[in-house]
Design a binder for these strands. Structure first.
Lengths: 173, 173
DNA sequence: CTCATCTAGTAAGGAGCCTAACTAAATGAA
DNA sequence: TTCATTTAGTTAGGCTCCTTACTAGATGAG
């Protein structure tokens, strides 16, 4: 399991060590604990999703790109538009497209009027793949939450929303 | 901002597209939404932390390793022990150590009795660095949550705990 | 003692992310 | 028209992660 976050027993040791080492308190150890919890969860959830996509030789990034190409063909997708839509650099998109094209999922065609641009589309094979991935993927996901009550789901969603806001304000400061 | 998750407006389009494309319901769209929320949050929080560590030329992985070497010297740290403690492969640890040694933070010494092993310690420079990173890092973290109430913190922590369990049972199935 | 096996660690190569620097094409102000 | 600037996209090289395959040393059964 991909973590790079200390395991539980070691996390505890570190926390108690911290309390000795940084006793001058402006530090809320509740916040530190929460942060560790969040970091661990984030690692694990992303890893879970990656494992998911790996079943079909995809990854989060490859899946997202193919999802966009599949569902919004009117958009005349280009690498730059994909980069903006997914929040990743142009160079990263280039790399992902290179492999997606190599694997026969995506086609790169020159744009008719603007010769700088590249028009991106899913190949037939790519479309077929997505047709089988999508139902499996999303029913798999929804099965994870089967044992949670509506109320729990709501609480979790609210908490994630709060964290989202916290992180956004932190990122912009 | 590193995401590789579609932005909000596109996420909405995808969701509505999904409802047409996969109408045979065993799918709880609440769950799908929650998953997207979790994925986005995970990406962003990890990215925030990375930006954090980058202030001192570190990364999550480098910081974790140095934290372990600093706080638990009795442990006679070796690459294998680090890999176990952090949940990452031996090969990954080798790579991280290579760079940490190159940057003068960590020392690799041959083990006295078992010549297969490598004894790992922080260099003086590494210790000094951590002495300045730790207080700054953790006070920065705790400042993020200043505007949250105790009650909110508690709710968030519980939600993360629930998600943690959900993910763990999903990973083991 | 010997030899198969286990353990510690590294190497090679791939993927997904980044930044910085580049080419080629379009645009627009003088 | 011309030439600086902007835009689209790729390349090169770095980091962190992975898997697979290897070397060297320790261990233990016969």
């Amino acid at each position: 399991m991909k973590r790079l976050i200390p395991n539980e027993s070691i996390k505890c040791s570190i926390l108690s060590m911290l309390k000795e080492r940084v006793p001058d308190i402006d530090i809320d150890f509740g916040a530190v604990k929460l942060t560790m919890q969040l970091a661990t969860l984030s690692q694990q959830s992303l890893h879970l999703f990656e494992g998911h996509f790996a079943q079909w030789g995809l990854s989060q990034g490859r899946f997202t790109i193919m999802m966009l190409l599949l569902n919004m063909p009117d958009n005349e997708w280009t690498p730059v538009k994909l980069a903006e839509a997914t929040g990743v650099t142009k160079a990263t998109v280039t790399g992902l497209l290179k492999n997606l094209e190599r694997d026969g999922h995506v086609l790169r065609q020159p744009h008719e009027t603007d010769r700088r641009k590249t028009r991106l589309t899913l190949s037939d094979a790519g479309k077929t793949l997505m047709q089988s991935v999508i139902p499996a993927h999303f029913s798999q996901i929804s099965s994870y939450y089967k044992h949670l009550t509506k109320k729990q789901m709501k609480q979790i969603s609210e908490s994630l929303e709060l964290l989202q806001q916290t992180i956004n304000s932190a990122s912009n400061s």
